[in-house]
């Protein structure tokens, strides 16, 4: 990827994010539409679930290891997080587990 395209991607991402932050001040100065409020309550959990799937899209379920590195590491994150509720611990624990598996058991 060229640096120029990379810079363009940053610009697009920055502009979209800024537009979202600015829109309410321009559009909803008086009243927020019901459906927008409703999406605000309901959509975040669905989007997070979607992002998890997006991150795991390259896991190779049909391959030799049947995505075991991903499955095991995800379970580590979930168990750590339900147990201790510390995001930092869960993230570091799960990532370390994944790195150890892919660096030592996969060629």
């Amino acid at each position: 990827m060229s640096d120029k395209y990379f810079l363009l991607m940053i610009l697009v991402c920055a502009a979209s994010t800024f537009a979202l932050r600015a829109l309410p001040f321009i559009a909803f100065n008086k009243r927020t539409p019901e459906f927008i409020k409703y999406l605000g309550r309901t959509q975040p959990a669905a989007v997070m679930a979607m992002l998890v799937i997006y991150c795991l899209k390259d896991a190779d379920i049909l391959g030799g290891l049947h995505a075991m590195p991903e499955i095991i590491s995800c379970l580590v994150v979930i168990v750590l997080h339900v147990w201790k509720r510390s995001a930092l611990l869960s993230i570091i624990g799960g990532t370390a587990c994944y790195m150890i598996i892919v660096q030592n058991f996969m060629l």
């Binding site: 998890v52 994150v77 997080h81 339900v82 799960g94 994944y98």
Partner: peptide, 22 residues
């Protein structure tokens, strides 16, 4: 060796999911 460090992103989103679920 940083191979596999990308998983931290997956882990981050999973923790947020768990928080929302609980």
């Amino acid at each position: 060796n940083t191979k596999g460090i990308d998983f931290s992103l997956t882990a981050l989103f999973i923790t947020i999911c768990v928080d929302q679920w609980l």
